[in-house]
Design a protein around this nucleic acid. Sequence first.
DNA 1: CTATCTAACGTTATATCATAACAGTCAACA
DNA 2: TGTTGACTGTTATGATATAACGTTAGATAG
Lengths: 165, 165
Amino acid sequence: MTDHSPQSGFCCTDHSGAAHTAAILAQAETRARESGVRLTPVRRRTLEILLEAHGALGAYEVLERLSAEGYGTQPPVAYRALNFLVENGFAHRIQRLNAFTACVHPARDHRAAFLICDRCNSVTEGCADSFSQAMIEAASAVGFQLERSTIEAVGLCSACAGKPA
Amino acid sequence: MTDHSPQSGFCCTDHSGAAHTAAILAQAETRARESGVRLTPVRRRTLEILLEAHGALGAYEVLERLSAEGYGTQPPVAYRALNFLVENGFAHRIQRLNAFTACVHPARDHRAAFLICDRCNSVTEGCADSFSQAMIEAASAVGFQLERSTIEAVGLCSACAGKPA
DNA sequence: CTATCTAACGTTATATCATAACAGTCAACA
DNA sequence: TGTTGACTGTTATGATATAACGTTAGATAG
């Protein structure tokens, strides 16, 4: 496992690979137990599917995989599992893509920001705690009680930036 | 017109009212002329509709108004006008709401951030230039070429925060 | 051990958001 | 004045998301 630096910025490590997937899944299970929520088979499998994916997945892509494995075949099955994961901090919704991605550090309470590659749609999760703090202050200066922020950046990932076009 | 402070934060002024609407519309027309794009009747009217709205409007809400006034009745009419406005900096898309809102300072090139009220859905546009700069730097540290960011915060606006529940 | 309760699951049906593709219109201008 | 290209409008369809309801299964009180 890699160092996830403390306050701000994006982490530069590869989050793919079976070992990492397993580790995150284990963290998620621990956290679910601790907070008294149930990581049921569909939910767990949905999280695995997100972890195995390269980028973010749309709800219907998740549904396809779930139904192929004998789970329900209709949209609510996927949406419910995905919403559960998001609400409990195991996954994030990427608004720009209408898609979902596994949280890379579900064990820690954090504010996330995302780098989305315009070309390959890869999604990198970063820690936006310092940004969020600044936002909370700027908002409260105008009397706005900020609860949560969505920070999504679009551009070229290092892999795609290297390629011609 | 009020002072739109330079680098960061949300502005505390009321952006509604016919006078302000007219001023922004005038700025938009100037800018359109300068940049050689055409602010046609549908596009102009669409911008007015956004300016007159209290919060952000969905494309179908805009379409409703447009078609009631003799413009086209089908979704592409609204989406084309809205996309034109967004691409040219006259409006913004609010991802979280699948909705659109007029830009409150179309004359200036800027990075926007939004405060979205959970209760009344009002949208306040703020200037995120300093956040964006910090993001660009954090992103480039991991080799990501950032092009644009979406920053949307959800919480309670000052009006709603005062009310009971 | 069984009755009961509730969270989760699965389904049908439908709502909501968005765009592809193509035909007609009109102003700019060679 | 004919051609071009941007704009508008239409039909049709695709993509995303949720409401509502019956069923299942795990927890728990009796």
